[in-house]
Amino acid sequence: MSAHTQPVTFTQPEPPIAPEKEIVESPFRDFVRAFLRHRSAVIGSVIVLSFLLIALLAPFITSYEYTARSQALLQAPSVEHWFGTDEMGRDIFTRVIYGTRISLWVGLFAISGSIMVGSLLGLVAGFYGGWRDTIISRFFDILLAFPSILLAIAIVAMLGRSLSNALLAIAIINIPTFGRLMRSKVLSVKSEDYILAARAMGMKNRRILFHHILPNCWTPIMVQGTLGFATAVIEAAALGFLGLGAQPPEPEWGTMLADARQYIQLAPWTMIFPGVAVALTVLGFNLLGDGLRDIFDPRMKQ
C-alpha cells in the first residue's frame, strides 16, 4: 500500500441477519393504516359508502315508486313523505334516493372513462415524447381552452340531450385533467434510476411502461379521480338543471332542482333536499380525495 492512500479496513464481520418475523409491510397495509388515522378521509369514505349503499339498496329504503304520483301536491315533509312531495305529488325522498343511482352512475362511468383515455394519452405523451407528445398535449390544450361546462353543453347540444350524452360530455371534458397529470408524473418517473435499471436489464418498452412506470404513477390519478368524481356529480347536476342531462321523469338531482325553481318560496323542500344530496355527495368525495392526497403525499409520511 503506498503512502498516499488511505487503507480501507476490511475487518468488519458481516452482521448476522436476524431471522425476522414474516410480516410483509406492503404499501397497501401502510396505506390502510394511514387511511384509518386520517379523519377527513374516514369521514369522506363514510359519506361515500353511505351513498353507495343508498344507491344499491334504493328499492329497500323506500316503498314508493319514483314516478308514482299522489293527490298530495307540494306537501311539506311529514311522516308519510319524509322529504315532502313535489308539484306532481311524487315523493321527494324516493326521488332523491333513486337520484343517487344516477349521480353515482354518471360519476363512476364518466370518470373511469376519462381516466382510461386521459391516462393512456398522458402515458404515451410522457413516455415517448416527440411528435406524439406535441399532438396529444395540444389536444389537451384545445380542450382546456374552453370553459369545461360550456364545452359539455356544446357536446350535448351536438349529440342530443340525454343522460348518456351528458355522461359522455363529462367524460370528454375531464380527459385533459387526467392526461396532463399522467404525463407530468410519467415524465418524473421516467427519469428515475429504476427505469434506467429496467432498461439495462433488457426490458421492452411495453414492459417498462406497464410494469414499472404505470404502477408508480397511479396515486395522483386516484386522488384526482376521487376529486373529479365530485366535479362530475356537479357537472351532471348542472347539465340536468339546464335540461341537457337526464330527462323527466328521471329523478336526477339537477333536473329536480330545475323543476323546483318555481316553487322555491311556496315549497322550499322541493329544492333543499336534492340540493343537500348534491352537496353531501360532493363533500364526501372531496373529503376522501383530500384525505387520499395527504396520505399519498410522501412528505406526510413519517
Binding site: P27, E192, D193, Y194, L196, A197, A198, A200, M201, G202, M203, K204, H212, P215, N216
Partner: peptide, 21 residues
Amino acid sequence: RKARRDLQMIFQDPFASLNPR
C-alpha cells in the same frame, strides 16, 4: 436488448434504483 443479458449494471443510489412497488 438480448445482449443486455451479458452486460449488467449496478447503480449508485440504492434507494432510487429499485422499483418501490
